[in-house]
Amino acid sequence: MSIQTTQLRKTYNQDTDFPVHAVKQLDLSIEQGEFVAVMGPSGSGKTTLLNMIGGIDIPSAGTVIIDGIDICALKDKALIAFRRDNIGFIFQDYSLLPVLTALENVEFVMQLQGHSEKECRERAITLLDQVGLGEQLHKIPSKLSGGQQQRVAVARALAPSPRFVMADEPTANLDAKSTAELLDIMQQLNEKEGTTFIFSTHDPRVIKRARRVIVFEDGQLTEDRAQ
């Protein structure tokens, strides 16, 4: 089980006089269970890469193969289902639904998968417990701190039991303490549950914690190291 990209390329404004080559000819392979940081300055193409391997953005060229499935060839509906069942997302701004409680936010994505209410409830509570929010189940996002919200987002991303979790600059809005807490949780989940995390960042403290670092510059991979 892996993510495999071959000759992956994304060019914005392709047909204009000023095409933007966000990702250029990328060959990359990520195995299940990895804890990968994609590092690079702003505008280097990190978001574009995560979006493409997460099945959100469509590559201009090349393929993304996840578990033998070429996700670029999937139709809209099939892609949504594939994404829902295989890939979790964590966003920089947490992006929780503001009108739902922490618990409901996590339950909601599971219900979309068609699980029973009881199953959703139980798993959501377990996950929120794991991220240390067992006491905050019924609070709506605006009553939680940024770090807490992002932990709800982690629980939400994990709720459908995805193989991969894409986190685009998950700690960018967090203070040092919350960042450390979040990374602890992610690392724990990675080590205990074998959840694959791929996160982008330009924070050196975050990069320190990764086991593999992919350095990105101007849409190109300049370094790929284990640590």
């Binding site: 997302f89 992006s95 991303a157």
Partner: peptide, 16 residues
């Protein structure tokens, strides 16, 4: 729009 995007990314089909 952004919220809709997030919902779709997390598995909400367009019809819903």
């Amino acid at each position: 729009y952004r919220e809709f995007g997030v919902m779709m990314a997390t598995g909400l089909v367009r019809a819903k």
